[in-house]
Amino acid sequence: MKILFLDIDGVLNSRFWSDANEREISEGKFIDSEKVMLLSRIIDETDAKIVLHSGWRFWFDDNLNPLRDEAVYFAEILKGHNLFIYDKTPDLTTEEIRKSKKFSLVKAREILLWLNKYDSIEEYLVLDDLYLNNQEIEAHQIKTDADIGLTEEIVIEAIMLLNARTH
Protein backbone atom coordinates (compact mmCIF):
# COMPACT_ATOMS: atom_id res chain seq x y z
CA MET A 1 0.00 0.00 0.00
CA LYS A 2 1.20 3.50 -0.86
CA ILE A 3 0.26 6.45 1.32
CA LEU A 4 0.06 10.14 0.55
CA PHE A 5 0.07 12.22 3.75
CA LEU A 6 -1.80 15.33 2.68
CA ASP A 7 -1.69 18.79 4.16
CA ILE A 8 -4.31 21.20 2.79
CA ASP A 9 -3.30 24.81 3.35
CA GLY A 10 -0.37 25.67 1.10
CA VAL A 11 -0.95 22.47 -0.94
CA LEU A 12 -4.57 22.40 -2.22
CA ASN A 13 -4.82 26.16 -1.86
CA SER A 14 -2.26 28.95 -1.81
CA ARG A 15 -1.83 32.57 -0.83
CA PHE A 16 -1.93 33.49 -4.51
CA TRP A 17 -5.22 31.59 -4.99
CA SER A 18 -6.73 32.99 -1.78
CA ASP A 19 -6.08 36.57 -2.86
CA ALA A 20 -7.92 35.95 -6.13
CA ASN A 21 -10.85 33.98 -4.65
CA GLU A 22 -12.17 36.03 -1.75
CA ARG A 23 -15.81 35.31 -2.65
CA GLU A 24 -15.29 31.53 -2.59
CA ILE A 25 -13.45 31.80 0.71
CA SER A 26 -16.29 33.85 2.19
CA GLU A 27 -18.56 30.93 1.23
CA GLY A 28 -16.31 28.46 3.09
CA LYS A 29 -14.72 27.09 -0.08
CA PHE A 30 -11.03 26.99 0.70
CA ILE A 31 -9.97 24.48 -1.95
CA ASP A 32 -8.51 25.30 -5.36
CA SER A 33 -10.18 22.84 -7.76
CA GLU A 34 -7.17 23.01 -10.11
CA LYS A 35 -4.97 21.72 -7.27
CA VAL A 36 -7.43 18.86 -6.70
CA MET A 37 -7.08 17.92 -10.38
CA LEU A 38 -3.30 17.78 -9.87
CA LEU A 39 -3.77 15.66 -6.74
CA SER A 40 -6.03 13.27 -8.66
CA ARG A 41 -3.22 12.69 -11.17
CA ILE A 42 -0.91 11.61 -8.36
CA ILE A 43 -3.51 9.21 -6.96
CA ASP A 44 -4.54 7.88 -10.39
CA GLU A 45 -0.96 7.10 -11.36
CA THR A 46 0.20 5.66 -8.03
CA ASP A 47 -2.93 4.16 -6.36
CA ALA A 48 -1.82 5.87 -3.15
CA LYS A 49 -4.30 6.26 -0.30
CA ILE A 50 -4.85 9.75 1.11
CA VAL A 51 -4.18 10.20 4.83
CA LEU A 52 -5.02 13.67 6.11
CA HIS A 53 -2.35 15.13 8.33
CA SER A 54 -3.60 18.68 8.02
CA GLY A 55 -5.29 20.62 10.80
CA TRP A 56 -8.34 20.04 8.62
CA ARG A 57 -8.50 16.50 10.01
CA PHE A 58 -10.20 17.94 13.11
CA TRP A 59 -13.10 18.91 10.84
CA PHE A 60 -13.84 15.20 10.31
CA ASP A 61 -15.08 12.71 12.89
CA ASP A 62 -13.42 9.33 13.53
CA ASN A 63 -15.42 7.81 10.66
CA LEU A 64 -14.18 10.62 8.37
CA ASN A 65 -17.60 12.26 8.16
CA PRO A 66 -17.33 16.04 7.70
CA LEU A 67 -18.20 18.11 10.77
CA ARG A 68 -18.11 21.57 9.17
CA ASP A 69 -19.31 23.12 5.92
CA GLU A 70 -15.69 23.60 4.75
CA ALA A 71 -15.07 19.88 5.24
CA VAL A 72 -18.30 18.98 3.42
CA TYR A 73 -17.18 21.07 0.44
CA PHE A 74 -13.70 19.51 0.57
CA ALA A 75 -15.10 15.95 0.66
CA GLU A 76 -17.46 16.76 -2.23
CA ILE A 77 -14.75 18.24 -4.44
CA LEU A 78 -12.55 15.18 -3.75
CA LYS A 79 -15.44 12.83 -4.57
CA GLY A 80 -15.97 14.71 -7.83
CA HIS A 81 -12.46 13.57 -8.81
CA ASN A 82 -13.04 10.05 -7.46
CA LEU A 83 -10.78 10.79 -4.48
CA PHE A 84 -11.47 9.77 -0.90
CA ILE A 85 -9.80 10.23 2.45
CA TYR A 86 -8.53 6.86 3.65
CA ASP A 87 -7.59 7.91 7.18
CA LYS A 88 -6.19 10.72 9.28
CA THR A 89 -3.14 10.95 11.50
CA PRO A 90 -3.50 10.85 15.29
CA ASP A 91 -3.50 14.09 17.28
CA LEU A 92 -0.42 14.79 19.41
CA THR A 93 -1.04 18.52 19.70
CA THR A 94 -1.17 20.27 23.03
CA GLU A 95 -3.17 23.36 23.89
CA GLU A 96 0.02 25.41 23.60
CA ILE A 97 0.77 24.04 20.11
CA ARG A 98 -2.80 24.79 18.99
CA LYS A 99 -2.61 28.35 20.38
CA SER A 100 0.77 29.08 18.80
CA LYS A 101 -0.11 27.14 15.61
CA LYS A 102 3.30 25.39 15.70
CA PHE A 103 1.92 22.14 14.28
CA SER A 104 5.24 21.40 12.59
CA LEU A 105 6.54 20.40 16.04
CA VAL A 106 4.33 17.29 16.15
CA LYS A 107 3.34 16.51 12.55
CA ALA A 108 6.33 14.21 11.92
CA ARG A 109 5.65 12.22 15.11
CA GLU A 110 1.97 11.92 14.17
CA ILE A 111 2.94 10.54 10.75
CA LEU A 112 5.46 8.09 12.25
CA LEU A 113 2.88 6.94 14.81
CA TRP A 114 0.41 6.30 11.98
CA LEU A 115 3.03 4.43 9.91
CA ASN A 116 3.96 2.24 12.89
CA LYS A 117 0.41 0.83 12.93
CA TYR A 118 0.81 -0.76 9.49
CA ASP A 119 3.20 -3.35 8.04
CA SER A 120 1.98 -3.13 4.47
CA ILE A 121 3.29 0.34 3.56
CA GLU A 122 5.45 0.03 0.42
CA GLU A 123 6.08 3.73 0.04
CA TYR A 124 4.82 7.00 1.45
CA LEU A 125 5.01 10.65 0.57
CA VAL A 126 4.28 13.76 2.62
CA LEU A 127 2.96 16.88 0.89
CA ASP A 128 3.24 19.87 3.21
CA ASP A 129 4.31 23.50 3.05
CA LEU A 130 6.02 23.29 6.46
CA TYR A 131 9.41 21.90 7.43
CA LEU A 132 8.58 18.96 9.69
CA ASN A 133 11.82 18.87 11.70
CA ASN A 134 12.48 15.17 11.19
CA GLN A 135 15.09 13.72 8.82
CA GLU A 136 13.26 10.42 8.27
CA ILE A 137 10.05 12.22 7.28
CA GLU A 138 11.83 14.91 5.26
CA ALA A 139 13.38 12.16 3.12
CA HIS A 140 9.79 11.36 2.07
CA GLN A 141 8.50 14.92 1.87
CA ILE A 142 7.93 17.29 -1.00
CA LYS A 143 7.69 20.76 0.50
CA THR A 144 5.28 23.00 -1.35
CA ASP A 145 5.51 26.77 -1.52
CA ALA A 146 2.51 28.17 0.40
CA ASP A 147 2.29 31.04 -2.11
CA ILE A 148 1.75 28.61 -5.00
CA GLY A 149 0.62 25.22 -3.61
CA LEU A 150 0.69 22.01 -5.62
CA THR A 151 2.30 22.33 -9.07
CA GLU A 152 2.75 20.25 -12.21
CA GLU A 153 6.45 19.74 -11.28
CA ILE A 154 5.51 18.44 -7.84
CA VAL A 155 2.98 16.04 -9.38
CA ILE A 156 5.69 14.53 -11.60
CA GLU A 157 8.12 14.23 -8.67
CA ALA A 158 5.43 12.75 -6.39
CA ILE A 159 4.48 10.09 -8.97
CA MET A 160 8.14 9.19 -9.44
CA LEU A 161 8.75 8.88 -5.68
CA LEU A 162 5.62 6.89 -4.94
CA ASN A 163 6.24 4.54 -7.86
CA ALA A 164 10.00 4.21 -7.25
CA ARG A 165 9.88 0.71 -5.84
CA THR A 166 7.26 -0.69 -8.20
CA HIS A 167 8.92 0.22 -11.49
Rank of each mutant, 00 (worst) to 15 (best):
Y131S: 12
V51F: 15
Y124D: 03
R23I: 10
I121M: 09
I50M: 08
Y131G: 09
V106G: 01
L132D: 06
K49D: 02
L125M: 06
S33N: 10
F30A: 01
G28D: 12
K101I: 06
D62V: 09
T46P: 11
S100Q: 13
F60G: 03
K117I: 02
K99Y: 14
S33Y: 13
L83M: 02
S33H: 12
N133S: 10
N133D: 14
N134P: 03
V51Q: 07
E76V: 08
L78V: 06
K79Y: 11
E34T: 07
G55T: 15
K79M: 03
I42R: 09
S100F: 11
N116P: 00
S54A: 13
D87E: 06
D128M: 12
F58A: 04
D62A: 04
F84I: 07
E27V: 00
F103A: 10
D32P: 01
Y124I: 02
D87V: 03
D61F: 11
V106A: 10
R41H: 10
Y131W: 06
S104N: 14
R98L: 13
I43Y: 11
G55I: 14
L67N: 08
D87P: 02
I25K: 15
R109D: 14
Y124G: 01
D69G: 07
F103D: 10
A71T: 13
M37W: 05
Q135A: 13
I85K: 02
L105C: 02
L39S: 06
E110Y: 11
W59C: 00
E123M: 11
N134G: 03
D62R: 07
N65P: 00
W59D: 02
P66C: 10
K99W: 13
N116M: 08
H53Q: 09
T46L: 11
E27C: 06
A108M: 05
D61P: 00
R68N: 01
P66S: 15
